[in-house]
Design a protein around this nucleic acid. Sequence first.
DNA 1: TTGTAAGCGTTATCAC
DNA 2: GTGATAACGCTTACAA
Lengths: 356, 356
Amino acid sequence: MNIGEIAKRAGVSRSTVSYALSGKRTVSEATRRRILRVIDEAGYRPNASARALAEGRTRTIALVIPPAGRRLTPIQLGFVASVVAAAGLHELDVLLSPSGGEHDRSFERIISGRRVDGVILMEVRLQDARAARLRESGLPFVAIGHTADAGTGCWVDLDYEGLIGNCVHHLADLGHRAIALINRPQEFLDSGYGPARRALDGFTAAAAARSLTATAICCPDDAMAGEACVENLLAAHPAITGIVTANEAALPGMERSLRRLGRAVPGQISITGVVGRHWAEEFHPPLTAADVPISDMADRAVGLLVERISSPAGPERHILLTPPISLRSSTAPPVQRAECDPALPSQGSHAECLTS
Amino acid sequence: MNIGEIAKRAGVSRSTVSYALSGKRTVSEATRRRILRVIDEAGYRPNASARALAEGRTRTIALVIPPAGRRLTPIQLGFVASVVAAAGLHELDVLLSPSGGEHDRSFERIISGRRVDGVILMEVRLQDARAARLRESGLPFVAIGHTADAGTGCWVDLDYEGLIGNCVHHLADLGHRAIALINRPQEFLDSGYGPARRALDGFTAAAAARSLTATAICCPDDAMAGEACVENLLAAHPAITGIVTANEAALPGMERSLRRLGRAVPGQISITGVVGRHWAEEFHPPLTAADVPISDMADRAVGLLVERISSPAGPERHILLTPPISLRSSTAPPVQRAECDPALPSQGSHAECLTS
DNA sequence: TTGTAAGCGTTATCAC
DNA sequence: GTGATAACGCTTACAA
């Protein structure tokens, strides 16, 4: 069933059918109705490929995600779902492209085959080959995260530097003097992953400004690693009373080790950081943290992209978000360590620690 | 840059360029080389829309996922990533369609606009409107999960009934007499979600076969709910020594409540079930469970779909997988409850429970 | 071994 | 207000 068949049945030309559907030319109410009835009866829908060829646009965008091998974090998953939802509001479909390395089949296929009108890039690195490739191709794109060259291109990002800095100040304000940062994995830092780098910078600068004793460590993106990290950290630096984390995937493990060590939160150890809201709420006790505004970021990214597609010559907009710290229950003023020695976790009940 | 321009520069006709690229007709080595060089210099790639229009196929498949509102579980996320990866191996791109309800814009747009060559349907219900719609459209599709009418359509699914049954038998073999099932949310059961239904059936049947005291409860898909469920369950049925779970998202909460209640795993409570491998490994202690073979299922689903696309008249294949239970450390023979009374969780150290 | 030309199903530009 | 008709860029008989 194609537009020609509809035209024949309705006794009009193909162009009239097309215009009756698009409204780009006035069609008499009578013929319009007739056409619509025929279309309805036949269950006709325009062929997307033909339309794309004729219009020169596909009504589709690509979402470039990290490759399947590297497990996606829940935050990333959230982005995928939110971007798809936001795109749907603009009648845009979403093509998924798992692309990490340089040699990428799917990415290249999508870009150079003109399969999409624009691209949303996730997990952008400070130096990003995909961003460079896209710039060269002239295809509109917006990044979630930004490259070292913040001035060019469209992007929406979180102000990790400021956010982590705020966390440090929050702990300092409560009276903590020795704090630690649990950052994303070491290889992220090494490979120039912006959030990891900026988290470290923000942590170091704020800690220096407040004259705090600061320890920054990297931690793989999973619970087991989080468990080990916290354990090692507290063994090596027993004076630490505050932790700020940029690693949400490590959170369940952190909770586990703290409990095993008999360190009450926030009684003996305060924890804060920047993580997805869901993780903050599932932490025990609920985590005082800067919540990553996932769907907000996705909406803005799609909005920026839609704007860019419709006017490619327009200004390149950047959106840097600094969500506030949501006060929940995981931070408090530090307490004297002597009250409950973590070196002896199994000595009788921990009641006095838990309630201190 | 289009095929005509390449033809002109190489001094041949457009068809020769096309054939040089597709190999569907022999082209002399000399002209072939010349064409390829020109293509390379110009950075030419065939336009996907034009090709789709001419060939009548889009080289794209759709992956229908639950809508954004309902948070995707990590297993579902795993499917998305794995399907995309598997599709890539077949040079297929993946269009994401978040579709749950009946009236779905994106789903309809993709199906009736012929945007894809085939569809993979996730989270199929026993009665599924999308499956019905697809059957009516004639578009090849394979479901992950199967409808009540198991005989028709292509699908790959887990044998939840058998799997949960195996878990029950495993506990019975160890000597457990009173067990419980932590199932997916109540509304899933009510709305005819196959895995929830079949899990319940398998549990009930196997428990009856072994003359066990069995309690089945539903639990929302999150940690906090898991915490409450286990707490209520053990309060209401103190005799329970074994739990089988079909709900991986509740696992972290279950772990938490068990620890708080002072019930050692597997010392006092054995836990098993069917969950994603990652969750089983992150549980504490590592969970003895039937691991959901996510990427295997995704590979098979894509394989089935590719086969169906190339020969739509072929047989409708079904794949029912029954992965084995991976023995880890969360099950053991039951122990006399009197040794460690859970009603008094804070009475001194729990050492004797933990090591029992 | 290669070229010509007829589609594929739309949209959009001209006429009337 | 409506109908021809030419793109859009590619694939693929059909000829040569």
